[in-house]
């Protein structure tokens, strides 16, 4: 089978990407160094989204709630409970997992268009909750996590995540772990079932797989990954605000994944990176940033529904995972 022969190039490619991203920090100028750290964290968000949208074929319009569950889970634990960084990160993941489980149990009762609307509405409720409890969340304005709270000592080692180099390495570490986890998931039996569900749910069920249970696991894992991105964002960049829970942050991961290529492991980072720089470069000429986003969405869905890596895979590299 070609898939098995493709194992070596697949792992080599991923190892090269991980190594390359690690080495880039020594050569990049200061500005791009900061951008790449941010892009890697956002790419984790996109990878979590891709697991559900690309591989399982479930189009959610509410993933901002999972990202901000991690963001607020970690941010509020540091700010109001005085937790240190690592337990706070864990709190973010736990909140994301719990929310994923509840939303999954409810939303997976629907399919197709209803699933999109239901996830969008739950996310809107979450957004309104962050506005309503403004005493703790400071609503739209948000709050900044003070620098001393973003430092951690493990044993004799001391990490200051407000330092660009440490921050970059932390973002890189999270990105690498999630990339490897995604790769292992999509190559596992569970991952194959998810793809089968995307292609033909009825047939998968007829073959004896529990489609609901598999989809539920996918929603929860996707939620945990997105929450990890949110929690890391809060800790690394020190800002927590309800903008991250708004509809726009549910659309952005969709855009990144569509651009990079749905159902490809490396598509999310590629899409996030491209989009970040497209907006960054065009903002020098025009402030019409939403126009670019809108146009990109329409053009992609019209002419490149498989995104950059999806097209490359179709044309040349059939083994890309």
């Amino acid at each position: 089978m070609s898939r098995d022969r493709a194992t070596l190039p697949t792992y080599a490619l991923h190892a090269a990407v991980i190594l390359g991203l690690f080495l880039l920090q020594f050569v990049l100028p200061e500005y791009h160094h900061g951008v790449l750290a941010r892009v890697m964290v956002l790419a984790v968000f996109a990878m979590g989204y891709n697991l559900l949208f690309g591989y399982t074929g479930l189009l959610s319009l509410g993933h901002a709630m999972f990202f901000s569950a991690g963001l607020y889970g970690a941010g509020l634990a540091i700010e109001h409970l005085g937790w240190s960084m690592l337990p706070a990160f864990g709190a973010g993941l736990a909140v994301g997992a719990l929310l994923g489980l509840v939303i999954g149990l409810l939303a997976l009762r629907t399919t197709g268009v209803a699933f999109m609307i239901v996830t969008m509405m739950f996310a809107q409720v979450f957004y309104l909750v962050t506005l309503y409890f403004a005493d703790w969340t400071h609503g739209d304005e948000g709050f900044v996590i003070a620098q001393p709270l973003r430092q951690v000592s493990i044993g004799n080692l001391y990490f200051d995540l407000t330092q660009p180099a440490t921050r970059y390495t932390a973002a890189w570490l999270l990105f690498s772990i999630v990339l490897i986890v995604t790769l292992l998931i999509v190559r596992s039996a569970h991952g194959r079932v998810l793809i089968a569900i995307r292609e033909n749910e009825e047939r998968t069920r007829m073959l004896g797989y529990d489609a609901f249970a598999n989809k539920l696991v996918a929603v929860v894992v996707s939620a945990i990954i997105c929450a990890a991105a949110g929690a890391a964002y809060a800790i690394l960049f020190g800002y927590v605000g309800s903008t991250f829970a708004s509809v726009q942050y549910s659309i952005l991961p969709l855009l990144w994944v569509l651009l990079g290529g749905g159902a490809t492991t490396l598509g999310p980072i590629l899409g996030t990176l491209f989009m970040y720089y497209i907006v960054d470069i065009t903002s020098a000429f025009t402030s019409a940033y939403l126009f670019i986003v809108g146009l990109a969405l329409i053009l992609l869905v019209l002419f490149f529904p498989k995104g950059v890596l999806g097209t490359i895979r179709d044309r040349w590299l059939g083994w890309l995972p």
Partner: peptide, 29 residues
């Protein structure tokens, strides 16, 4: 846009999200 997408439910949702941003930006500009 919509006709070229053959009214595929998921693709049209993404496309109308795109329209939303374009119209909003046009009004703002």
């Amino acid at each position: 846009v919509l006709r070229r997408l053959n009214y595929n439910p998921e693709a049209t949702i993404v496309a109308t999200i795109g329209m939303l941003y374009i119209l909003q930006q046009a009004a703002l500009t």
